[in-house]
Amino acid sequence: MPDTQNEGTIKITVEFSGGLEMLFSNERKLSLYIPAIDADGSRSNIAFLVRHLCETFMNDPRKELFVLDDTVRPGILVLINDADWELEGEDKYVIEEGDNILFVSTLHGG
């Protein structure tokens, strides 16, 4: 994982809310660089980011609390620059430099 900007990487912010931060060492906010192009040679999208987060940043082995059937599990909203990812093309959305990606787990207490 590069921690400085290289050729071919893009800088983004990833945030977790609603308890998901517990799966990521209690970090609510990560600033990170990801490759602009993924292993398949296509531009990195949200699907790539989710895999990347799982492999690189998730310490908790209970991956199913974040990913199920190769996508973000039910009950987690993905928000791209403060908008529901459904407005942006879901996991096909191609990540841009400076994007803010927020993962929110829905809460049920009341």
């Binding site: 308890g19 599990r73 039910p74 009950g75 829905t106 009341g110």
Partner: peptide
């Protein structure tokens, strides 16, 4: 529309187990 599928039951945490701060709720 927002949550077409329910979350896995084991991922649902109650106030009794997770805790809750009065002014938050």
């Amino acid at each position: 529309c927002v949550f077409p599928k329910p979350p896995p039951a084991e991922s649902v945490v109650t106030c009794g187990d997770g805790g809750i701060l009065g002014p938050v709720v």
